[in-house]
Computed example of a mutant assay.
Amino acid sequence: MRITWWGHATTTIEANGTRLLTDPVLTSRIAHVRRRRGPAPLPEAGQCDAVLVSHMHADHLHLSSLPLVAPDAALVVPRGAAKLIHQDSGAAFSDRCIEVAPGNQIRIGSLDITAVTALHDGRRLPWSSYAGPALGYRVEGSPSVWFAGDTDLYDDLATEAGPVDLALVPVGGWGPSLGPGHLDPVRAAEAVRLVRARIAIPIHFGTFWPIGCDWLKPDLFLPPGDKFKTAMTEVAPEASVEVLAPGESTEVDA
């Protein structure tokens, strides 16, 4: 299996000839936040068999990035998101949507995918009435993968998402406050321990930051990746951690 981290929550999971793209943000800006590290993803990032969208927030369901995705790719989205996509982008995109909720299973190419719970606000916000469940996804490949989306710890995390071989786990955010429904580096390490992953790759940090705020709380931009790696040595020392830079890839054995 090959994993590429394009920055923020955007990753490519490639296994057995199937390519999945998570929460694609393929541009250099989302509203008032801009990409501060690494260039915008290469055009190859949009080449996939399916997109997995975790929730409707604009930095995860980024409508401006959907035209940069392969035109025949399925769009796996939380229940209720197809209406938002139809309103913004039209039937050419909404007709490709597969809406899911926690517990739903689908098959894309050679991979079985299960939507799992994420403890996070699933509303579009702001100035929008669209809402749906926040999700993570478990990909049954060799190895198996948990893409967490945005979540905090919750009671059934261990049994819903785990056990799993590889965790793509959020460890930070895009601004000077993290807020509820997120994992910081220490809680992210605990999440990896709960799902019993043997490999962890930190995501959702060190990519975007509000325009004009480069000076504000820089300890929340790059450090979460290394802080997560340090926390893992205490919380789950049996697991290995690979901290990637945006655009980097790694091979993960079964």
Rank of each mutant, 00 (worst) to 15 (best):
P185F: 06
G17I: 08
T22D: 12
E242D: 09
I3E: 11
V171D: 06
P237W: 11
T18N: 01
A231H: 00
T10V: 07
V169I: 15
P43F: 08
A58L: 06
F205A: 10
E99L: 07
D184F: 11
V51D: 00
R19M: 07
A81E: 00
T230E: 08
H182A: 15
Y137R: 13
L119W: 08
P185Q: 11
Y137P: 07
T159L: 13
L20W: 04
G38M: 07
L68W: 07
L157K: 00
P102A: 08
H204W: 09
D150M: 14
D72L: 12
L153R: 07
D72C: 09
H182R: 09
G149K: 06
L183V: 08
L61V: 04
V53Q: 03
R124I: 12
R196S: 08
T22I: 14
L26F: 00
A167L: 09
N16K: 11
G141E: 01
P163C: 15
E160Y: 12
F221S: 04
I199D: 00
A254M: 10
S89P: 09
P67I: 15
I3W: 02
P218Y: 09
G212K: 05
G109I: 00
I106L: 15
D59F: 01
M232A: 10
A101S: 12
A9S: 06
S249D: 11
H60Y: 08
W5C: 10
A167F: 06
I113G: 10
D214M: 09
T151Q: 15
V252D: 01
S142V: 00
A167K: 00
D112Q: 13
F221C: 08
G17R: 04
V53Y: 07
L153P: 03
D150F: 11
F147L: 13
R123W: 10
S54P: 10
V33T: 08
P176V: 08
P71D: 13
P246I: 04
L84F: 06
W174I: 00
G80C: 08
L166H: 03
T11R: 06
A15G: 06
T117M: 11
V195F: 08
L166D: 04
M1F: 12
R36Q: 09
L84S: 05
I203E: 10
P43Q: 09
A70G: 03
T250S: 06
P210H: 03
A9Q: 04
F208W: 00
A200L: 01
I211L: 13
A131F: 09
A58N: 05
R193V: 02
E234R: 13
L26G: 08
R138K: 14
P237E: 11
P170S: 15
P24I: 09
S128G: 12
D49I: 00
L166S: 01
G212N: 09
S110G: 09
A245K: 14
D23H: 10
T159M: 15
I30P: 08
A191E: 06
A239M: 01
T4M: 09
L84R: 06
